[in-house]
Design a protein around this nucleic acid. Structure first.
Length: 236
DNA sequence: GCGACAG
DNA sequence: ATCTTGTCGC
């Protein structure tokens, strides 16, 4: 069923699948993205991120579930699969989604909203990993990136909460450059699916506490990159 | 042709 | 993303 939306990892191994085919899939799926806030009250929010092990041979996806109201941890999942596609700017989702989907499937609960690392519609073909994930799962998603992939913006204010539009060459707004904390590099926020541009930035700020990244993303990042384990290993 | 380029 | 210690600044 996902054959037309996400080539199997095997199809890309050794370049069995072409980048041209992947780009065509993105163009088609981008048309399915909805930017309407059609979700109800948020009960469970999730954060997803991907890390690598063994020099990149293993792709490791992490998903964390939090109570949308209290940010209390409700659960998490990990998926580790062989990596068989290289990183290619613009085609990130084909490399990372297989593991992410597997981790999501292993959960006993479906989140009402997913914060994904990377871009949503702020992408050359309008389908960054967050948007791709949203279309494939049918769930509301928001892209939280640390760098711009495409687009331009006016100067941004220095204080926490300040934001400016990220626009494409045609002048269309595709995201928000958001200062989540004072004196830190801004985050690039863009809708993935079933979330409006305005809500995307608001929701991110709702889940930012004392760090640059919103909690769902920050916690998923820890799990995916094994921050805790490494800290112990180094300080020991 | 040249440079840019999420994670 | 990942390899990696200490260090400068708020």
């Amino acid at each position: 069923m996902t054959a037309h939306t996400l080539p199997t990892p095997a199809e890309f191994c050794g370049w069995g699948g072409s980048t041209a085919a992947a780009r065509e899939i993105q163009h088609q799926l981008a048309e399915k993205v909805v930017l309407t806030d059609d979700f109800g009250l948020l009960k469970v929010v999730a954060g997803v991120d991907v890390g690598f092990e063994d020099g990149g041979k293993i792709t490791r996806a992490a998903v964390v579930l939090l109570d949308a109201e209290t940010l209390e941890p409700l659960g998490h999942a990990l998926a580790r699969i062989p990596t068989c596609m290289p990183y290619i700017p613009g085609l990130l989702s084909f490399r990372e989604l297989p593991a992410v989907l597997q981790a999501l499937d292993s959960l006993d609960q479906t989140p009402d909203l997913i914060f994904s690392d990377g871009h949503g519609i702020a992408h050359p073909r309008g389908l960054g990993i967050a948007a791709h994930l949203g279309v494939v799962t049918g769930l509301p998603t928001i892209g939280v990136a640390k760098k711009i992939l495409t687009g331009f913006h006016q100067p941004l204010g220095e204080q926490r909460g300040h934001q400016v539009d990220l626009v494409d060459k045609a002048g269309k707004v595709i995201g928000t450059v958001l200062r989540s904390k004072d004196k830190v590099r801004p985050l690039i926020i863009s809708p993935g699916n079933r979330v409006s541009l305005e809500s995307a930035a608001q929701l991110v700020m709702r889940y930012v506490t004392r760090y640059r990244l919103p909690e769902p993303t920050r916690l998923a990042d820890r799990l995916a990159s094994r921050r805790d384990e490494k800290r112990v290993a180094v300080s020991k």
